[in-house]
């Protein structure tokens, strides 16, 4: 069906497209094929629409969100943009706590949707945004923090949506690769796929930033999302800005897909595992997530100049 009563109803059911040029072995006896789940086709252009909508609907169902409420959320951008759209259509206010080292496009989009932005210091990255949001939640008890890092509706959106959609389109799936942020995508879709395809591998790609982002005062200030359960994963890769940018550009050059930087990191991990399988002579169907398009990162310089220059410009920025 391609007709919907409102924009929020158009969330999900995104296309899965093959990568005939970047796959290690697209054809032949034991193909090793890569498939991209185009989550940039969601209403605000990222996979976060799924979690935002699910969290709002769950909070409405249990009575926490009532007309006129203000939603509070720590976010590096995409979740905020998704929540801003849903909040606008459902009649809520939105306050986003966002690290100051995020791209200008994300801020402009949030402001356009009517969200209020509270900046948290660049040092400490999203950890600091989470801490600031938790303080604000105590100061303003009438604000409703949906808290994507610990809200079961986040993972459930992927258990009920992303996972089943991928399996429907790719019944021969052997590997699922996605970005690790709140962990919602990997926990939800990963759990679903493991239940249905016992041998499936679930692989996480996480961004590796410059020193500034890891500027904690001590190790105990570290943060692991409450949703995270490492038994769902098979392996986990840390991907540098340079490798993420390189793969983001490969994706445009060889497959025509204009994706955001985190997608480059996810593709890097997907190619690592695909090449291992190809070397062993076995077959594989690797589905990976295109989390968003490249539009919101143009100002970071990610798509112009040499890779080295682009990686240097990205130093200290949060790109996932």
């Amino acid at each position: 069906m391609t007709r919907y009563d409102s924009l929020v109803d158009a969330t999900g059911d995104t296309p899965l497209v093959g990568l005939p040029n970047l796959s290690p072995r697209w054809e032949g006896e034991n193909p090793v094929r890569l498939w991209a789940k185009l989550e940039d086709r969601n209403p605000t252009g990222s996979i976060k629409d799924r979690a935002a909508l699910a969290m709002v609907r769950a909070a409405e169902a249990d009575g926490r969100l009532t007309p006129g409420c203000t939603i509070l959320e720590p976010t590096s951008g995409n979740t905020g943009i998704s929540l801003a759209m849903v909040a606008k259509l459902h009649g809520y206010g939105l306050v986003c706590v966002m690290p100051e080292n995020t791209s200008i496009e994300r801020r402009q989009l949030l402001e356009m949707f009517g969200a209020r932005i509270i900046s948290s210091p660049a040092a400490g990255g999203s950890n600091q945004a989470v801490a600031t949001a938790k303080q604000l939640a105590e100061q303003y008890p009438d604000w409703v923090m949906l808290y994507q890092y610990g809200n079961p509706a986040n993972a459930q959106a992927h258990y009920e949506g992303t996972g089943p959609e991928i399996l429907h389109d790719l019944p021969t799936i052997t590997h699922f690769v996605a970005g690790l942020g709140t962990t919602g995508t990997l926990m939800g879709a990963g759990r679903y796929l493991r239940e249905k395809v016992p041998d499936v591998s679930v692989i996480a790609a996480e961004p590796r930033y410059g020193d500034l982002v890891y500027g904690l005062r001590n190790i105990d200030e570290g943060f692991v999302p409450e949703l995270y359960d490492d038994s769902v994963l098979t392996s986990r890769f840390s991907v540098t800005s340079y490798d993420a940018l390189r793969r983001t550009r490969d994706l445009i050059e060889h497959e025509g897909i204009f994706a955001g930087i985190s997608t480059g990191a996810i593709l890097h991990a997907a190619l690592s595992v695909a090449e291992r399988v190809a070397d062993s002579g076995e077959r594989a169907d690797v589905a990976f997530v295109v989390a968003d398009g490249g539009w919101k990162y143009l100002s970071t310089g990610a798509y112009s100049g040499s890779l080295q220059q682009a990686a240097e410009q990205l130093e200290g920025q949060l790109w996932a």
Binding site: P74, T75, S76, T79, G124, G125, S126, N127, A129, V130, Q148, Y149, G179, L180, G181, T182, E206, P207, R208, Y209, V213, Y214, L216, I219, E221, G222, F223, V224, P225, S238, A320
Partner: peptide, 10 residues
């Protein structure tokens, strides 16, 4: 070998 503290994403 790379050692990093755990930080939030999203």
């Amino acid at each position: 070998v790379t050692i990093l503290p755990a930080v939030a994403g999203g």
